[in-house]
Simulated scan of single mutants.
Amino acid sequence: MKDWSEARRVVLSLGSNLGERLENLQGGVDALFDAWGLRLVALSPVYETEPIGGPKQDPFLNVIVVADTVLTPETLLERAQNVEDAFHRVREVRWGPRALDVDIISLGTETRSDPDLTLPHPRAHERAFVLRPWADIDPTAEIVGHGAVRDLLRSVAAQELQRRDDLTLQVPQ
């Protein structure tokens, strides 16, 4: 096991537009933190957004999770995909509807262009559903190679999203 002094900050994006969307998000957050290696730093408010790309589908609920981790990028990706699989994630249609989507947005200052995991996430800087909730919980956040999240928000101002203060997630214990 690694020592927590070696922890890096990770930003995860969770989204759901099938079934009980809020329950799916809560289950995803709970499952991510159910095993050793992640410590929650912040959980964003819930946002509702229209899908970007892909087939016609229902709106998403989205949240951002900021955590500290001692997991390797590969182990973190495996955990995220296992959580998606537990919610019956189907990968037949690119950007299609899904009960749960878990994306690794950034991991410290790491950059990589691997077919399985690109860091930072290649489209995070173009997505209001990532930038807005992230800015809510970390106003000084930056995306390596793209700049400050708050500044990037200007370029996605036309993307509609609604903060859903009537919907909340419980912080995992």
Score class of each variant (00 low, 15 high):
D151L: 12
L25G: 09
R127A: 02
G108P: 08
H121R: 02
R89I: 04
E126A: 00
Y47D: 00
Q170R: 15
E50L: 15
W36R: 01
F60K: 02
D166R: 06
S13F: 08
E84V: 04
A42N: 11
L38R: 05
P45V: 04
D101Y: 10
Q159I: 01
R112C: 12
V171W: 01
L12E: 05
V144I: 12
V156P: 11
S44G: 10
R127Q: 02
A158V: 13
E23N: 03
E78G: 00
E78H: 09
E126I: 03
D85Y: 01
E20R: 14
P115G: 03
L71H: 06
D58K: 07
A99M: 09
V93N: 00
V29I: 05
T109F: 08
P97A: 13
I52F: 15
H88E: 11
K2A: 14
L40I: 06
P55G: 02
D165P: 08
L38I: 02
D136R: 09
Q57V: 04
R21M: 12
L100R: 02
T75R: 15
T111A: 10
T118S: 06
T75K: 14
G54F: 14
S16D: 00
L131G: 06
L61Y: 14
T75D: 15
P97E: 07
F87G: 03
T168L: 07
L38C: 01
E92R: 09
V46S: 00
L18E: 11
R164T: 04
E23I: 03
L32Y: 10
A128K: 06
F33E: 09
R163N: 01
F129Q: 06
Q81I: 03
V90P: 03
V29A: 00
A124F: 09
A86R: 14
R150P: 04
L14P: 11
Q159E: 14
V29S: 00
P97R: 04
A42C: 01
R39W: 05
R132S: 09
V90E: 15
F33T: 08
L43V: 12
D165H: 08
E126F: 10
R127E: 09
H121V: 10
L153M: 15
A7G: 00
R127M: 10
N82T: 06
G15R: 11
G37I: 13
W4Y: 15
R79F: 11
T109C: 02
G108W: 05
A124W: 12
I104G: 04
G145P: 13
R98I: 03
A135D: 13
L14E: 06
P133C: 00
G147K: 05
N24T: 05
D114A: 07
L14Q: 08
H121Y: 12
T75S: 13
A42Q: 13
F33A: 08
E84L: 10
R94P: 15
R21L: 10
A128S: 13
Q26G: 00
D166V: 12
L61Q: 02
D58G: 08
P73T: 03
R112M: 15
G147V: 09
